[in-house]
Design a binder for these strands. Sequence first.
DNA 1: CCAAAAGTGTTTTAATTACACCCATGA
DNA 2: TCATGGGTGTAATTAAAACACTTTTGG
Lengths: 239, 239
Amino acid sequence: MTTKRVKGTIKKAYQDKEPVLLAVDCIIFGFDIEGLKLLIFKRHYQPLAGEWSLLGSFVERDENIKDTAHRVLKEVTGFNKIFVEQLHTFGSVARDSGDRVVSIAYWSLIKLNEQNTHLNVEGYEAKWVDFKKVPKLVLDHNEMVNVALSRLRERARIRPIGFELLPDKFTLPQLFNLYQAIYQTTLDDRNFRRKILRSGLLLELGEKDKSTSKRGAQLYKFDYDRYEQLTKEGYLFEI
Amino acid sequence: MTTKRVKGTIKKAYQDKEPVLLAVDCIIFGFDIEGLKLLIFKRHYQPLAGEWSLLGSFVERDENIKDTAHRVLKEVTGFNKIFVEQLHTFGSVARDSGDRVVSIAYWSLIKLNEQNTHLNVEGYEAKWVDFKKVPKLVLDHNEMVNVALSRLRERARIRPIGFELLPDKFTLPQLFNLYQAIYQTTLDDRNFRRKILRSGLLLELGEKDKSTSKRGAQLYKFDYDRYEQLTKEGYLFEI
DNA sequence: CCAAAAGTGTTTTAATTACACCCATGA
DNA sequence: TCATGGGTGTAATTAAAACACTTTTGG
Protein backbone atom coordinates (compact mmCIF):
# COMPACT_ATOMS: atom_id res chain seq x y z
CA MET A 1 0.00 0.00 0.00
CA THR A 2 2.64 2.48 0.99
CA THR A 3 4.59 1.58 -2.11
CA LYS A 4 1.62 2.55 -4.20
CA ARG A 5 0.92 5.72 -2.34
CA VAL A 6 3.24 8.16 -3.89
CA LYS A 7 3.86 8.68 -7.53
CA GLY A 8 7.51 9.53 -7.22
CA THR A 9 8.63 6.56 -5.24
CA ILE A 10 7.15 3.96 -7.50
CA LYS A 11 7.79 5.33 -10.93
CA LYS A 12 10.88 3.34 -11.67
CA ALA A 13 9.29 0.09 -10.65
CA TYR A 14 6.19 1.00 -12.55
CA GLN A 15 8.05 1.56 -15.76
CA ASP A 16 9.84 -1.74 -15.56
CA LYS A 17 6.59 -3.65 -15.59
CA GLU A 18 4.62 -4.28 -18.71
CA PRO A 19 2.87 -0.99 -19.24
CA VAL A 20 -0.80 -0.21 -19.33
CA LEU A 21 -1.66 0.52 -22.95
CA LEU A 22 -3.77 3.51 -23.84
CA ALA A 23 -6.25 3.64 -26.68
CA VAL A 24 -9.03 5.85 -27.98
CA ASP A 25 -12.35 4.52 -29.29
CA CYS A 26 -14.93 6.62 -31.09
CA ILE A 27 -18.69 6.40 -30.96
CA ILE A 28 -20.02 8.06 -34.11
CA PHE A 29 -23.66 9.05 -34.46
CA GLY A 30 -25.37 10.20 -37.61
CA PHE A 31 -28.94 11.10 -38.47
CA ASP A 32 -30.83 10.86 -41.71
CA ILE A 33 -34.33 10.33 -42.95
CA GLU A 34 -34.33 6.81 -41.55
CA GLY A 35 -33.39 7.93 -38.05
CA LEU A 36 -30.49 8.01 -35.67
CA LYS A 37 -27.59 5.75 -36.55
CA LEU A 38 -24.30 4.49 -35.30
CA LEU A 39 -21.22 3.88 -37.43
CA ILE A 40 -19.53 0.55 -36.81
CA PHE A 41 -16.59 -1.23 -38.34
CA LYS A 42 -15.54 -4.76 -39.06
CA ARG A 43 -12.28 -5.51 -37.32
CA HIS A 44 -9.71 -6.79 -39.72
CA TYR A 45 -6.98 -7.65 -37.27
CA GLN A 46 -6.52 -10.06 -34.44
CA PRO A 47 -7.81 -10.71 -31.96
CA LEU A 48 -11.52 -10.75 -32.80
CA ALA A 49 -10.99 -10.11 -36.50
CA GLY A 50 -14.25 -10.15 -38.42
CA GLU A 51 -16.34 -8.91 -35.53
CA TRP A 52 -18.08 -5.56 -35.36
CA SER A 53 -16.38 -2.87 -33.38
CA LEU A 54 -16.02 0.82 -32.81
CA LEU A 55 -13.15 2.50 -34.53
CA GLY A 56 -10.12 3.19 -32.41
CA SER A 57 -6.41 3.61 -32.22
CA PHE A 58 -3.65 3.54 -29.71
CA VAL A 59 -2.49 6.86 -28.35
CA GLU A 60 0.93 7.76 -29.64
CA ARG A 61 3.51 8.87 -27.15
CA ASP A 62 3.76 12.32 -28.71
CA GLU A 63 0.08 12.81 -29.40
CA ASN A 64 -2.56 14.61 -27.34
CA ILE A 65 -5.41 12.23 -26.64
CA LYS A 66 -7.83 14.66 -28.25
CA ASP A 67 -5.71 14.48 -31.38
CA THR A 68 -5.91 10.72 -31.40
CA ALA A 69 -9.67 11.03 -31.54
CA HIS A 70 -9.50 13.62 -34.30
CA ARG A 71 -7.06 11.50 -36.26
CA VAL A 72 -9.37 8.50 -36.10
CA LEU A 73 -12.42 10.56 -36.99
CA LYS A 74 -10.78 12.50 -39.76
CA GLU A 75 -9.64 9.34 -41.37
CA VAL A 76 -13.19 8.07 -41.86
CA THR A 77 -15.28 11.16 -42.12
CA GLY A 78 -12.76 13.01 -44.24
CA PHE A 79 -13.52 15.99 -42.12
CA ASN A 80 -13.21 18.27 -39.58
CA LYS A 81 -16.19 20.37 -38.76
CA ILE A 82 -17.72 17.72 -36.58
CA PHE A 83 -18.72 17.61 -32.97
CA VAL A 84 -16.34 15.56 -30.82
CA GLU A 85 -16.38 15.30 -27.07
CA GLN A 86 -14.67 13.08 -24.59
CA LEU A 87 -17.12 10.61 -23.13
CA HIS A 88 -15.60 8.39 -20.49
CA THR A 89 -12.52 6.33 -19.88
CA PHE A 90 -12.97 2.60 -19.65
CA GLY A 91 -10.37 0.87 -17.58
CA SER A 92 -11.43 -2.42 -16.09
CA VAL A 93 -8.56 -4.85 -15.92
CA ALA A 94 -10.63 -7.45 -17.70
CA ARG A 95 -12.07 -5.28 -20.45
CA ASP A 96 -9.60 -6.36 -23.09
CA SER A 97 -8.95 -10.02 -23.57
CA GLY A 98 -5.22 -9.78 -24.11
CA ASP A 99 -3.17 -6.86 -22.89
CA ARG A 100 -4.20 -4.35 -20.31
CA VAL A 101 -5.69 -1.61 -22.44
CA VAL A 102 -7.38 1.43 -21.01
CA SER A 103 -9.59 3.14 -23.55
CA ILE A 104 -10.67 6.74 -23.64
CA ALA A 105 -13.97 6.90 -25.47
CA TYR A 106 -14.95 9.93 -27.54
CA TRP A 107 -18.37 10.50 -28.99
CA SER A 108 -19.02 12.34 -32.16
CA LEU A 109 -21.92 13.68 -34.17
CA ILE A 110 -21.67 13.99 -37.90
CA LYS A 111 -23.86 15.75 -40.38
CA LEU A 112 -24.91 12.89 -42.59
CA ASN A 113 -26.79 14.77 -45.27
CA GLU A 114 -23.80 16.91 -46.00
CA GLN A 115 -21.40 16.15 -48.77
CA ASN A 116 -19.33 14.34 -46.17
CA THR A 117 -21.77 11.47 -46.44
CA HIS A 118 -19.01 10.16 -48.64
CA LEU A 119 -17.16 8.44 -45.89
CA ASN A 120 -13.64 7.50 -46.54
CA VAL A 121 -14.21 3.87 -45.78
CA GLU A 122 -11.63 2.35 -48.12
CA GLY A 123 -9.74 -0.19 -46.19
CA TYR A 124 -12.57 -0.48 -43.71
CA GLU A 125 -15.72 -2.44 -43.83
CA ALA A 126 -18.06 0.01 -42.20
CA LYS A 127 -21.78 0.43 -41.92
CA TRP A 128 -24.39 2.63 -40.38
CA VAL A 129 -26.78 0.78 -38.11
CA ASP A 130 -30.00 1.86 -36.46
CA PHE A 131 -29.05 2.92 -32.94
CA LYS A 132 -31.83 0.74 -31.56
CA LYS A 133 -30.43 -2.34 -33.29
CA VAL A 134 -26.72 -2.24 -32.62
CA PRO A 135 -25.29 -5.74 -33.00
CA LYS A 136 -22.92 -7.35 -30.54
CA LEU A 137 -19.66 -5.44 -30.66
CA VAL A 138 -16.26 -6.54 -29.40
CA LEU A 139 -15.11 -6.11 -25.81
CA ASP A 140 -17.06 -3.46 -23.89
CA HIS A 141 -17.95 -1.45 -26.99
CA ASN A 142 -21.68 -1.97 -26.51
CA GLU A 143 -21.37 -0.44 -23.07
CA MET A 144 -19.53 2.49 -24.59
CA VAL A 145 -22.39 2.98 -27.02
CA ASN A 146 -24.91 2.95 -24.21
CA VAL A 147 -22.99 5.51 -22.24
CA ALA A 148 -22.72 7.65 -25.37
CA LEU A 149 -26.43 7.42 -25.96
CA SER A 150 -27.19 8.54 -22.42
CA ARG A 151 -24.80 11.39 -22.86
CA LEU A 152 -26.39 12.38 -26.15
CA ARG A 153 -29.81 12.47 -24.50
CA GLU A 154 -28.55 14.40 -21.52
CA ARG A 155 -26.72 16.91 -23.69
CA ALA A 156 -29.47 17.36 -26.25
CA ARG A 157 -31.81 18.42 -23.48
CA ILE A 158 -29.71 21.26 -22.20
CA ARG A 159 -27.45 22.17 -25.05
CA PRO A 160 -28.28 22.86 -28.67
CA ILE A 161 -26.48 19.85 -29.93
CA GLY A 162 -29.14 18.51 -32.25
CA PHE A 163 -27.89 20.90 -34.88
CA GLU A 164 -24.65 18.96 -35.06
CA LEU A 165 -26.55 16.07 -36.57
CA LEU A 166 -28.39 18.09 -39.19
CA PRO A 167 -27.13 19.78 -42.34
CA ASP A 168 -26.24 23.43 -41.91
CA LYS A 169 -29.57 24.29 -43.48
CA PHE A 170 -32.40 22.32 -41.99
CA THR A 171 -36.15 22.46 -41.56
CA LEU A 172 -38.21 22.40 -38.40
CA PRO A 173 -39.78 19.06 -39.29
CA GLN A 174 -36.25 17.63 -39.56
CA LEU A 175 -35.29 18.98 -36.17
CA PHE A 176 -38.56 17.75 -34.74
CA ASN A 177 -37.99 14.26 -36.09
CA LEU A 178 -34.46 14.26 -34.76
CA TYR A 179 -35.60 15.01 -31.22
CA GLN A 180 -38.28 12.37 -31.47
CA ALA A 181 -35.68 9.87 -32.62
CA ILE A 182 -33.20 10.74 -29.88
CA TYR A 183 -35.76 10.43 -27.11
CA GLN A 184 -37.85 7.72 -28.74
CA THR A 185 -41.02 9.56 -27.98
CA THR A 186 -43.68 11.55 -29.73
CA LEU A 187 -43.85 15.26 -29.19
CA ASP A 188 -46.47 17.86 -29.95
CA ASP A 189 -45.22 19.70 -32.99
CA ARG A 190 -46.94 22.99 -32.19
CA ASN A 191 -45.39 23.14 -28.76
CA PHE A 192 -42.03 22.08 -30.11
CA ARG A 193 -42.05 24.81 -32.73
CA ARG A 194 -43.04 27.46 -30.26
CA LYS A 195 -40.35 26.48 -27.84
CA ILE A 196 -37.54 26.22 -30.31
CA LEU A 197 -38.45 29.44 -32.07
CA ARG A 198 -38.83 31.28 -28.81
CA SER A 199 -35.16 30.57 -28.08
CA GLY A 200 -34.30 32.93 -30.93
CA LEU A 201 -31.41 30.72 -31.99
CA LEU A 202 -32.73 29.82 -35.41
CA LEU A 203 -32.23 32.07 -38.38
CA GLU A 204 -34.96 31.82 -40.98
CA LEU A 205 -33.28 31.65 -44.35
CA GLY A 206 -36.17 32.54 -46.61
CA GLU A 207 -35.47 29.43 -48.66
CA LYS A 208 -37.53 26.29 -48.79
CA ASP A 209 -36.63 22.65 -48.89
CA LYS A 210 -39.01 20.96 -51.28
CA SER A 211 -37.42 17.54 -51.07
CA THR A 212 -40.05 16.11 -48.76
CA SER A 213 -43.22 17.93 -49.70
CA LYS A 214 -44.83 19.86 -52.50
CA ARG A 215 -45.38 22.85 -50.33
CA GLY A 216 -41.82 22.91 -49.09
CA ALA A 217 -40.56 23.58 -45.58
CA GLN A 218 -38.82 26.69 -44.40
CA LEU A 219 -35.06 26.33 -44.04
CA TYR A 220 -33.26 27.58 -40.96
CA LYS A 221 -29.74 27.68 -39.73
CA PHE A 222 -28.47 27.66 -36.20
CA ASP A 223 -27.17 31.00 -35.03
CA TYR A 224 -23.89 29.99 -33.39
CA ASP A 225 -22.82 33.57 -32.78
CA ARG A 226 -26.01 34.41 -30.97
CA TYR A 227 -25.70 31.24 -28.96
CA GLU A 228 -22.19 32.18 -27.88
CA GLN A 229 -23.44 35.59 -26.94
CA LEU A 230 -26.41 34.33 -24.96
CA THR A 231 -24.34 31.68 -23.21
CA LYS A 232 -21.95 34.34 -21.99
CA GLU A 233 -24.91 36.19 -20.57
CA GLY A 234 -25.92 33.13 -18.61
CA TYR A 235 -28.63 31.84 -20.92
CA LEU A 236 -29.43 28.15 -20.60
CA PHE A 237 -30.76 26.37 -23.64
CA GLU A 238 -33.34 23.78 -22.78
CA ILE A 239 -35.70 21.84 -24.94
CA MET B 1 -0.54 7.61 -40.96
CA THR B 2 -1.35 4.17 -42.24
CA THR B 3 0.95 2.72 -39.64
CA LYS B 4 -1.11 4.35 -36.97
CA ARG B 5 -4.41 3.29 -38.36
CA VAL B 6 -4.95 -0.10 -36.97
CA LYS B 7 -4.36 -1.22 -33.46
CA GLY B 8 -3.10 -4.67 -34.36
CA THR B 9 -0.43 -3.71 -36.78
CA ILE B 10 1.29 -1.27 -34.53
CA LYS B 11 1.08 -2.88 -31.18
CA LYS B 12 4.53 -4.41 -31.20
CA ALA B 13 6.18 -1.17 -32.17
CA TYR B 14 4.08 0.67 -29.66
CA GLN B 15 5.16 -1.49 -26.82
CA ASP B 16 8.83 -1.09 -27.59
CA LYS B 17 8.63 2.65 -27.18
CA GLU B 18 8.62 4.33 -23.84
CA PRO B 19 5.06 3.87 -22.71
CA VAL B 20 2.44 6.42 -21.91
CA LEU B 21 1.99 6.41 -18.14
CA LEU B 22 -1.45 6.38 -16.63
CA ALA B 23 -2.41 8.09 -13.40
CA VAL B 24 -5.50 9.01 -11.45
CA ASP B 25 -5.98 12.36 -9.72
CA CYS B 26 -8.79 13.14 -7.30
CA ILE B 27 -10.67 16.37 -6.80
CA ILE B 28 -12.20 16.24 -3.33
CA PHE B 29 -14.94 18.64 -2.27
CA GLY B 30 -16.25 19.12 1.22
CA PHE B 31 -18.78 21.47 2.77
CA ASP B 32 -19.04 22.87 6.25
CA ILE B 33 -20.29 25.93 8.02
CA GLU B 34 -17.64 28.04 6.31
CA GLY B 35 -18.66 26.96 2.84
CA LEU B 36 -17.58 24.74 -0.01
CA LYS B 37 -14.01 23.56 0.14
CA LEU B 38 -11.38 21.66 -1.77
CA LEU B 39 -8.84 19.29 -0.26
CA ILE B 40 -5.30 19.82 -1.48
CA PHE B 41 -1.96 18.26 -0.64
CA LYS B 42 1.62 19.34 -0.45
CA ARG B 43 3.70 17.24 -2.79
CA HIS B 44 6.57 15.63 -0.98
CA TYR B 45 8.33 14.11 -3.93
CA GLN B 46 10.11 15.36 -7.01
CA PRO B 47 9.48 17.01 -9.31
CA LEU B 48 7.64 19.97 -7.85
CA ALA B 49 8.04 18.85 -4.25
CA GLY B 50 6.63 21.37 -1.81
CA GLU B 51 3.98 22.65 -4.19
CA TRP B 52 0.26 22.20 -3.72
CA SER B 53 -1.37 19.47 -5.69
CA LEU B 54 -4.32 17.15 -5.97
CA LEU B 55 -3.83 13.67 -4.62
CA GLY B 56 -3.13 10.99 -7.16
CA SER B 57 -1.49 7.72 -7.95
CA PHE B 58 -0.37 5.70 -10.90
CA VAL B 59 -2.72 3.02 -12.13
CA GLU B 60 -1.37 -0.42 -11.37
CA ARG B 61 -1.35 -2.93 -14.15
CA ASP B 62 -3.77 -5.23 -12.35
CA GLU B 63 -6.04 -2.54 -10.98
CA ASN B 64 -9.31 -1.19 -12.37
CA ILE B 65 -9.00 2.57 -12.78
CA LYS B 66 -12.05 3.05 -10.58
CA ASP B 67 -10.22 1.11 -7.88
CA THR B 68 -7.22 3.38 -8.17
CA ALA B 69 -9.50 6.29 -7.37
CA HIS B 70 -11.05 4.46 -4.45
CA ARG B 71 -7.65 3.45 -3.15
CA VAL B 72 -6.46 7.05 -3.19
CA LEU B 73 -9.64 8.33 -1.58
CA LYS B 74 -9.87 5.65 1.03
CA GLU B 75 -6.36 6.35 2.10
CA VAL B 76 -7.13 9.93 3.07
CA THR B 77 -10.76 9.89 3.99
CA GLY B 78 -10.54 6.60 5.81
CA PHE B 79 -13.80 5.75 4.21
CA ASN B 80 -15.95 4.43 1.89
CA LYS B 81 -19.44 5.79 1.76
CA ILE B 82 -18.44 8.71 -0.40
CA PHE B 83 -19.54 9.90 -3.78
CA VAL B 84 -16.94 9.30 -6.49
CA GLU B 85 -17.41 9.82 -10.19
CA GLN B 86 -15.09 9.89 -13.13
CA LEU B 87 -14.64 13.43 -14.36
CA HIS B 88 -12.46 13.67 -17.42
CA THR B 89 -9.19 12.35 -18.74
CA PHE B 90 -6.41 14.86 -19.22
CA GLY B 91 -3.93 13.85 -21.85
CA SER B 92 -2.06 16.70 -23.45
CA VAL B 93 1.46 15.74 -24.33
CA ALA B 94 2.79 18.73 -22.47
CA ARG B 95 0.69 18.44 -19.32
CA ASP B 96 3.39 16.79 -17.26
CA SER B 97 6.83 18.27 -17.28
CA GLY B 98 8.76 15.02 -17.36
CA ASP B 99 7.24 11.80 -18.63
CA ARG B 100 4.16 11.45 -20.74
CA VAL B 101 1.49 10.95 -18.12
CA VAL B 102 -2.18 10.78 -18.97
CA SER B 103 -4.33 11.40 -15.94
CA ILE B 104 -7.87 10.26 -15.32
CA ALA B 105 -9.49 12.72 -12.95
CA TYR B 106 -12.15 11.63 -10.48
CA TRP B 107 -14.21 13.99 -8.40
CA SER B 108 -15.53 13.20 -5.02
CA LEU B 109 -17.85 14.64 -2.40
CA ILE B 110 -17.31 13.93 1.24
CA LYS B 111 -19.49 14.52 4.24
CA LEU B 112 -17.32 16.79 6.31
CA ASN B 113 -19.42 17.05 9.42
CA GLU B 114 -19.43 13.32 9.87
CA GLN B 115 -17.01 11.57 12.12
CA ASN B 116 -14.86 11.09 9.04
CA THR B 117 -13.79 14.68 9.41
CA HIS B 118 -10.80 12.99 10.96
CA LEU B 119 -8.88 12.65 7.78
CA ASN B 120 -6.07 10.24 7.73
CA VAL B 121 -3.55 12.80 6.72
CA GLU B 122 -0.51 11.38 8.44
CA GLY B 123 2.31 11.40 5.98
CA TYR B 124 0.55 14.07 3.97
CA GLU B 125 0.45 17.75 4.45
CA ALA B 126 -3.13 18.42 3.50
CA LYS B 127 -5.53 21.27 3.89
CA TRP B 128 -9.04 22.32 3.04
CA VAL B 129 -9.20 25.53 1.05
CA ASP B 130 -12.12 27.74 0.11
CA PHE B 131 -13.09 26.66 -3.42
CA LYS B 132 -13.05 30.30 -4.50
CA LYS B 133 -9.47 30.73 -3.34
CA VAL B 134 -7.65 27.68 -4.63
CA PRO B 135 -3.93 28.44 -4.83
CA LYS B 136 -1.75 27.61 -7.80
CA LEU B 137 -1.52 23.84 -8.04
CA VAL B 138 1.02 21.78 -9.96
CA LEU B 139 0.65 20.91 -13.64
CA ASP B 140 -2.90 21.20 -14.94
CA HIS B 141 -4.51 20.53 -11.56
CA ASN B 142 -6.19 23.93 -11.44
CA GLU B 143 -7.87 23.12 -14.73
CA MET B 144 -9.02 19.83 -13.27
CA VAL B 145 -10.55 21.68 -10.35
CA ASN B 146 -12.38 24.03 -12.69
CA VAL B 147 -13.78 21.18 -14.70
CA ALA B 148 -14.86 19.47 -11.48
CA LEU B 149 -16.58 22.61 -10.28
CA SER B 150 -18.53 22.92 -13.51
CA ARG B 151 -19.51 19.30 -13.23
CA LEU B 152 -20.61 19.74 -9.63
CA ARG B 153 -22.81 22.65 -10.64
CA GLU B 154 -24.24 20.80 -13.60
CA ARG B 155 -24.94 17.68 -11.55
CA ALA B 156 -26.34 19.43 -8.52
CA ARG B 157 -28.97 21.02 -10.70
CA ILE B 158 -30.38 17.81 -12.04
CA ARG B 159 -29.41 15.17 -9.54
CA PRO B 160 -29.74 15.15 -5.79
CA ILE B 161 -26.05 15.11 -5.01
CA GLY B 162 -26.08 17.98 -2.58
CA PHE B 163 -26.87 15.40 0.05
CA GLU B 164 -23.49 13.80 -0.52
CA LEU B 165 -21.89 16.87 1.00
CA LEU B 166 -24.07 17.00 4.09
CA PRO B 167 -24.21 14.75 7.13
CA ASP B 168 -26.80 11.99 6.92
CA LYS B 169 -29.03 14.10 9.10
CA PHE B 170 -29.21 17.67 7.94
CA THR B 171 -31.47 20.70 8.18
CA LEU B 172 -33.10 22.69 5.42
CA PRO B 173 -31.06 25.79 6.23
CA GLN B 174 -27.92 23.68 5.74
CA LEU B 175 -29.10 22.43 2.39
CA PHE B 176 -30.13 25.93 1.42
CA ASN B 177 -26.72 27.32 2.30
CA LEU B 178 -25.04 24.53 0.39
CA TYR B 179 -26.90 25.35 -2.81
CA GLN B 180 -26.16 29.02 -2.36
CA ALA B 181 -22.48 28.19 -1.92
CA ILE B 182 -22.32 25.91 -4.95
CA TYR B 183 -23.95 28.43 -7.25
CA GLN B 184 -22.57 31.52 -5.54
CA THR B 185 -25.93 33.15 -5.57
CA THR B 186 -28.71 34.08 -3.21
CA LEU B 187 -31.94 32.14 -3.37
CA ASP B 188 -35.38 32.75 -1.95
CA ASP B 189 -35.68 30.45 1.02
CA ARG B 190 -39.44 30.07 0.82
CA ASN B 191 -39.34 29.00 -2.78
CA PHE B 192 -36.40 26.72 -2.11
CA ARG B 193 -38.16 24.98 0.73
CA ARG B 194 -41.33 24.51 -1.23
CA LYS B 195 -39.49 23.06 -4.19
CA ILE B 196 -37.30 20.69 -2.24
CA LEU B 197 -40.13 19.46 -0.03
CA ARG B 198 -42.43 19.01 -3.01
CA SER B 199 -39.97 16.46 -4.42
CA GLY B 200 -40.91 14.21 -1.54
CA LEU B 201 -37.34 12.99 -1.19
CA LEU B 202 -36.71 14.30 2.29
CA LEU B 203 -37.76 12.36 5.34
CA GLU B 204 -38.58 14.52 8.34
CA LEU B 205 -36.93 12.94 11.35
CA GLY B 206 -38.84 14.64 14.14
CA GLU B 207 -35.54 15.64 15.72
CA LYS B 208 -34.08 19.09 15.90
CA ASP B 209 -30.58 20.39 15.47
CA LYS B 210 -30.06 23.11 18.03
CA SER B 211 -26.43 23.74 17.22
CA THR B 212 -27.09 26.89 15.23
CA SER B 213 -30.13 28.39 16.87
CA LYS B 214 -32.08 28.44 20.09
CA ARG B 215 -35.21 27.38 18.37
CA GLY B 216 -33.58 24.49 16.56
CA ALA B 217 -34.05 23.36 12.96
CA GLN B 218 -35.88 20.27 11.84
CA LEU B 219 -33.59 17.42 10.80
CA TYR B 220 -34.18 15.50 7.60
CA LYS B 221 -32.57 12.64 5.80
CA PHE B 222 -32.48 11.93 2.13
CA ASP B 223 -34.73 9.08 1.07
CA TYR B 224 -32.39 7.11 -1.21
CA ASP B 225 -34.87 4.26 -1.64
CA ARG B 226 -37.61 6.57 -2.78
CA TYR B 227 -35.18 8.29 -5.11
CA GLU B 228 -34.24 4.96 -6.69
CA GLN B 229 -37.89 4.16 -7.07
CA LEU B 230 -38.82 7.49 -8.63
CA THR B 231 -35.84 7.43 -10.95
CA LYS B 232 -36.92 4.07 -12.30
CA GLU B 233 -40.32 5.57 -13.00
CA GLY B 234 -38.73 8.32 -15.04
CA TYR B 235 -38.73 11.05 -12.44
CA LEU B 236 -36.21 13.83 -12.99
CA PHE B 237 -34.92 15.63 -9.96
CA GLU B 238 -34.34 19.30 -10.60
CA ILE B 239 -33.64 22.12 -8.23
C1' DC C 1 -37.57 40.31 26.85
C1' DC C 2 -35.01 40.28 22.97
C1' DA C 3 -31.78 38.76 19.49
C1' DA C 4 -31.23 35.41 16.11
C1' DA C 5 -32.43 31.88 13.25
C1' DA C 6 -36.50 28.92 11.62
C1' DG C 7 -40.49 28.73 9.48
C1' DT C 8 -44.77 30.00 6.86
C1' DG C 9 -48.78 31.95 2.38
C1' DT C 10 -50.42 34.59 -1.27
C1' DT C 11 -50.44 36.96 -5.53
C1' DT C 12 -48.48 37.68 -10.04
C1' DT C 13 -46.32 36.09 -13.91
C1' DA C 14 -44.72 32.89 -17.09
C1' DA C 15 -44.33 28.33 -18.99
C1' DT C 16 -46.35 24.02 -20.16
C1' DT C 17 -49.80 21.13 -21.80
C1' DA C 18 -53.55 19.65 -24.53
C1' DC C 19 -55.97 19.96 -28.49
C1' DA C 20 -57.81 20.29 -34.32
C1' DC C 21 -57.98 22.60 -38.30
C1' DC C 22 -56.36 25.34 -42.61
C1' DC C 23 -52.58 26.04 -46.15
C1' DA C 24 -49.84 25.38 -50.26
C1' DT C 25 -48.53 22.79 -53.97
C1' DG C 26 -47.21 19.33 -57.62
C1' DA C 27 -48.73 15.52 -59.65
C1' DT D 1 -58.68 18.31 -57.27
C1' DC D 2 -56.74 15.96 -53.90
C1' DA D 3 -53.21 13.82 -51.17
C1' DT D 4 -49.38 15.10 -48.56
C1' DG D 5 -46.73 17.25 -45.43
C1' DG D 6 -46.23 22.26 -43.47
C1' DG D 7 -47.93 25.37 -40.66
C1' DT D 8 -50.87 27.94 -37.08
C1' DG D 9 -53.84 29.71 -32.04
C1' DT D 10 -56.16 29.37 -27.70
C1' DA D 11 -57.69 28.00 -23.27
C1' DA D 12 -56.57 25.44 -18.98
C1' DT D 13 -53.24 23.98 -15.93
C1' DT D 14 -49.16 24.14 -13.50
C1' DA D 15 -44.84 25.90 -12.04
C1' DA D 16 -41.93 29.90 -10.99
C1' DA D 17 -41.00 34.24 -9.01
C1' DA D 18 -41.54 37.91 -5.96
C1' DC D 19 -42.48 39.44 -1.67
C1' DA D 20 -42.58 40.22 4.60
C1' DC D 21 -44.04 38.80 8.67
C1' DT D 22 -44.59 35.44 12.78
C1' DT D 23 -42.61 31.81 15.75
C1' DT D 24 -39.53 29.85 19.06
C1' DT D 25 -36.34 29.86 22.69
C1' DG D 26 -31.89 30.27 25.37
C1' DG D 27 -29.39 33.66 27.37
